[in-house]
Design a protein around this nucleic acid. Structure first.
Lengths: 216, 216
DNA sequence: TTCGAACCGTACCGTACGGTACGGCAAGAC
DNA sequence: GTCTTGCCGTACCGTACGGTACGGTTCGAA
């Protein structure tokens, strides 16, 4: 029996994962030109097998996106010693993770695929990407924010609003510009600025929500 | 000679605009299922005419996006009496315009189309959308911000950074969620919150960049 | 009235691609 | 050995759609 890796209630054999990797590679390099024939050739498998394993093209696409999206894992932040410095480092880490993921080529491809998919009354891919991208960050960040508030280090009424402001401060217009293929945003260009952007966003977030901020 | 309307160096006859309207309508209702046959049928014209006027499918798509995107016109803000209140109203107005545009069904469709297009090494649509969306706002907002700084009402080093922070504070995660087809964001739901979001974003922007803000 | 331009409607072609069928082969069961 | 299972490779089918061709109609100009 082959070793399987559990991914979101779905298991894939190594052979199947090789197929998914091939599909993802094709997706990344070739844009959305993902044809069943191309995947079969790249993965050295037959189309019949593809249909047997994944049902149809949409199933293969969904499996690929889901499998890849679930691989994005945020480091868990230590909640025990929550002093000001630790909180700030945690927030910074979240900003760094969020930016790093969003800027990555794979993420851009997945988001583009999901957006394209959503343009056809199919929101399944969008849900998956949303769930494993922004919402995953949110689920992990919110408790930190609330712990910060409990410790009188942060001030806000709604942790939801605080999270969304955080998202805006970090992401700004970078994601939409990447999705739209803005040529003035090269990969290396953006990556080089991540640290500075992370620091700026964190500073701004604390300026708005830090306990000493002068907003009510 | 028919009346023509000048749009970004391109002129379209009323008949051509009717065709573009049909194409846009199809785009909005039918997702990206924009076929030449469907446009021809909807606009009651022949495919031959479509190809004669727009060259190929991509030309029609480009013309449609460009024509519609150029219709987004931001109200010009009065720069003469720049006191604190006027500045705040201007910023609020920009936030309102930006949010209103981004939330609109047409904008979502256009952005999705451009993203899909960008997934195929074609960045022309992306450039158009970018140029007429965020960048148009930026071109108009930056002078206001700099005037505000000259009047000692705002503080910032880089107006570019200030603009991008503004964008983030206003848009947050709304656009990407709409593009991904997040069902928990209904049109009416978002529109109902625009005013509150505008106010919150403006407050936060002034908290960060207002002259009395305690950031360096 | 005749001519030509523009355009509609429709039929048509070629191709790309999703999906299916089938022959062959390797590996394990027995 | 033989049988079964699972898979590869390839050939094949049907259809949707981009793009072209062409006959017919309207309309303005001379």
């Amino acid at each position: 029996m082959p070793v399987t890796i559990k991914v979101n209630e779905e298991t894939f054999t190594p052979r199947q994962q090789a197929v998914l990797t091939a599909a993802l590679d094709l997706l990344v390099e070739n844009g959305d030109g993902l044809t069943m024939t191309a995947v079969a050739r790249r993965a050295s498998c037959s189309k019949e097998t593809l249909y047997k394993w994944f049902g149809d093209r949409d199933g293969l696409l969904t499996a690929t996106v889901q499998w890849q999206a679930a691989k994005v894992r945020m480091p868990v932040v230590d909640r025990s010693h929550l002093n000001a410095k630790a909180l700030r480092l945690s927030i910074e880490q979240f900003a760094r993770d969020l930016l790093t993921v969003i800027v990555g080529e794979v993420s851009v491809t997945l988001n583009r695929t999901a957006v394209t998919h959503a343009a056809q009354e199919k929101d399944s891919l969008g849900t998956i990407v949303l769930e494993n991208g922004p919402l995953a960050i949110r689920r992990r960040l919110k408790p930190i924010l609330e712990a910060g508030r409990d410790a009188r280090l942060l001030r806000f009424d709604s942790s939801e609003d605080a999270y969304r402001t955080f998202f805006g401060l970090v992401v700004r217009d970078v994601q939409i510009r990447l999705l739209l293929g803005d040529k003035s945003l090269t990969q290396s260009n953006v990556e080089a600025n991540i640290e500075a952007d992370v620091k700026a966003a964190t500073d701004q977030f604390f300026a708005l929500y830090g306990a000493k901020a002068n907003n009510p």
